[in-house]
């Protein structure tokens, strides 16, 4: 049974369609990459899965349970953790406190267990030295790491990563990929939106291409990237 299923999910804002009958399954522990041109509806897809947007039609099923009408906090408690494309830290709290909120609420960890859990994640994401810094004072790259770390702190079964590798150096990107591989190896299912294709394809088992809110193609990364349609629409190469 898939851990997450979308059945004909659609969402429009007036004439603008951000999701049109989107359907796919995500297997437990699977890593799925999402690519598509700007405005293809990638971040809107995350907002629909995480509950920040309510679909106009269609169903979202998490682990056999229909969560289409559930608000974001309930989806988080049900096992969906997310990062935001534009980082949204709790600006007046420290980096450590940002994770503590996620661990105590989304992860439902006890006051005894949460601190160790948070420090462990901060070490894994390279933020341990910044634990006491006010999150609002972090650089953009550190904020992106914090997005990943905070999502991890909720102990998700499905983690949604939205362009967290953008702007990283090769070395930083390598560290990030190693961290995501580790999350994947621990059995967490991943949906990762990313423009840094080599990083993405080195982790994911399947790749999904979105265009104008529709699923253009979904399959093994090599096959998807070799598809003439993808070459034409996403990479700008004539078929």
């Amino acid at each position: 049974m898939p851990i997450l299923s979308l059945h004909n999910v659609s969402k429009s804002f007036g004439a603008l369609t951000v999701a049109e009958r989107v359907s796919f399954d995500l297997r437990a522990g699977e890593a799925l990459g999402v690519i598509g041109p700007n405005g293809a509806g990638k971040s809107s897809l995350f907002n629909l899965i995480a509950g920040n947007l309510r679909p106009d039609s269609g169903r979202i099923v998490l682990d056999g349970r229909d969560v289409t009408a559930a608000p974001p906090m309930q989806r988080c408690l049900a096992g969906i953790g997310r990062s935001f494309q534009i980082p949204q830290p709790f600006g007046h709290l420290s980096v450590y406190e940002n994770l503590l909120v996620a661990a105590r609420f989304g992860g439902a960890l006890s006051a005894d267990a949460a601190p160790r859990h948070c420090m462990d994640i901060l070490r894994r994401t390279g933020l341990a030295a910044q634990a006491e810094r006010i999150a609002g004072s972090l650089s953009l790259l550190q904020r992106k790491r914090l997005e990943l770390a905070r999502a991890m702190a909720t102990e998700p079964r499905v983690i949604l990563l939205d362009e967290i590798a953008g702007g990283l150096t090769e070395g930083e990107c390598g560290e990030l990929v190693a961290t995501i591989r580790q999350i994947h190896a621990e059995g967490t299912a991943i949906i990762w939106i990313e423009h840094v294709l080599h990083a993405l394809t080195s982790v994911v088992e399947r790749l999904m291409v979105l265009n104008f809110g529709r699923v253009l193609v979904i399959g093994a990364p090599d096959e998807v990237m070799a598809s003439p349609e993808v070459g034409e629409i996403y990479l700008g190469v004539a078929a």
């Binding site: 974001p72 997310r82 406190e97």
Partner: peptide
Amino acid sequence: SRMGLGLQALRDNANAARSVGVD
């Protein structure tokens, strides 16, 4: 307390707070 921490997270960013399980 846990509630107070959630309250301060909400004040800083309600959207992100909801996404990490704060009601």
